[in-house]
Amino acid sequence: MTHQDTNTDQTTGGPAFRIAKFGIGAVVRHRIYPFRGIVFDVDPVFDNTEDWWLAIPEAVRPRKDQPFYHLLAENAETEYVAYVSEQNLLPDTSGEALRHAGIGEMFVRDDTGIYRVRDRAPN
């Protein structure tokens, strides 16, 4: 009996990808740090520089074999773009609108408070 590696796709031998928990337009908050944001892109596994990853303190450094999310993020003081592992995100159920200046270029908030990708009409 062989042990199946949960990080390898047995069909292709490559890395196994998990289904991302959050989709484009999802409003999320960080599990530890006081910021929230909206997902505008998803990487199925870590896709940033090794220097970036190593700069995270080892005690809280996330695994690379999980989805990573690009967020238009904000905290009480500022707005920025964040790159966050799935293990560190939770759904934000506050219903509060986000204020990030970049949201209007990518998303429209409907009457129910849901953010939808803005239609990109050709010029």
Rank of each mutant, 00 (worst) to 15 (best):
P44F: 07
E50Q: 05
P67Y: 04
H30T: 01
T11Q: 14
L72P: 06
N123M: 08
F46V: 03
I38N: 01
V84A: 07
D119S: 07
T112C: 06
D51L: 15
L54E: 13
G13W: 06
E105M: 12
N48C: 14
G102W: 01
L89N: 02
P34D: 11
D92M: 02
T11L: 13
P122N: 07
H100I: 03
R31T: 10
A76H: 05
T93D: 11
V108T: 13
E77C: 05
G14W: 04
A101E: 10
D51H: 14
F17M: 12
A20P: 13
N7Y: 08
V81N: 09
A59F: 05
T2N: 13
P57H: 06
S85N: 00
E86V: 05
T2K: 13
N7E: 08
E105Y: 10
R118M: 10
S85I: 01
H3C: 14
Y115A: 02
N123Y: 06
E58P: 13
L89A: 02
D43E: 08
R36C: 04
A55G: 13
F46A: 07
V42I: 11
V60F: 13
K64Q: 04
Y33R: 15
R118F: 06
D119M: 05
W53Y: 10
L90Q: 14
A121P: 15
